[in-house]
Simulated assay, not measured.
Amino acid sequence: MTVSVEITGVNKQFHKHVVLKDIRLTVQKGKIFGMIGPSGCGKTTLIKVIVGMLKPDSGNVIVLDKPVPQFDQLEKIGYMAQSDALYTDLTGFENLKFFAKLYGSPKKQREQQIAYAAEVVQLTDDLKRKVQDYSGGMKRRLSLAIALIQNPEILILDEPTVGIDPALKKTIWKELERLRDEEQKTIFITTHVMDEAEKCDELALMREGKIIAQGMPVELKAQFEADNFDDVFLKAGGHLS
């Protein structure tokens, strides 16, 4: 199997507060890898280390066979942050067009990419509205569309379904599964919603900056003799929030 992300011995602290403790992960190409855990456990910091926004204090991060950060990697990585980074004085369409141009997409391809991404997140009818008039959920959907727009090899999504209604959440997960199955995209996703864990090919459970368990969903439930991931997390030594 080809490895898309390899993390070995990563540690990170801010001042004297340790946020990541000896993180070791391998994410295979064409898989959905889930990082689950309560808010504040270090998931977002790990995401930022993977995309090269933060430098670890120690350890190594290899993404698509190269150590991060590498400028030529950026167009191969679709990144959705936990906090929306949007131009609120522009329309949804203008935001998508800006990011498509930023990634160097040809004009004809750009139009197709915008149409595709907007349709996935069900924003097609709202693209002419300014983002300042969007609801919080609509902004999350636009952020996801931006992550999809350059047809990346790997998607790194930090709690992408927060604030999104159940019906659209189902649609988004269906598209993520299609990207995995048909296009062999690698998807690294963080969440604190335990029912999304079942949809991942492999999981890492995180608590207080440490990985407390890792494996396929069925393996983890068997290992901890649990019927659901709330119980898996609790039995593994975690806590819910």
Rank of each mutant, 00 (worst) to 15 (best):
S58I: 10
S58D: 14
G59Q: 15
V61K: 13
I62L: 01
V63D: 10
K66F: 08
Q70H: 13
F71H: 09
F71Y: 06
Q73N: 06
Q73K: 13
K76C: 01
I77R: 15
Y79G: 02
M80F: 10
M80K: 03
A81N: 00
Q82A: 11
S83N: 13
S83M: 07
D84Q: 12
A85C: 06
T88G: 01
D89S: 11
D89T: 06
L90V: 07
T91S: 13
F93A: 07
E94A: 14
L96P: 10
K97L: 14
F98S: 04
F99Q: 00
A100W: 14
K101V: 14
K101C: 15
L102K: 01
Y103S: 06
G104D: 08
G104C: 08
S105C: 15
S105Y: 12
S105H: 13
K107G: 11
Q109Y: 13
Q109L: 13
R110G: 09
E111H: 07
E111C: 04
Q113L: 05
I114W: 05
I114M: 11
I114H: 07
Y116W: 12
Y116L: 10
Y116A: 08
Y116M: 12
A117M: 11
A117F: 12
Q122T: 13
L123D: 08
T124H: 09
D126R: 14
D126H: 13
K130E: 09
K130M: 02
V131L: 05
Q132C: 04
S135Q: 03
G136V: 13
G137F: 12
M138T: 04
K139E: 08
K139R: 12
R140D: 11
S143A: 15
L144C: 00
A145T: 06
A145G: 07
I146Y: 01
I146E: 00
A147H: 07
L148T: 00
Q150C: 10
N151T: 08
E153V: 05
L155S: 03
L155G: 03
L155V: 06
I156D: 03
D158A: 10
D158S: 11
E159H: 14
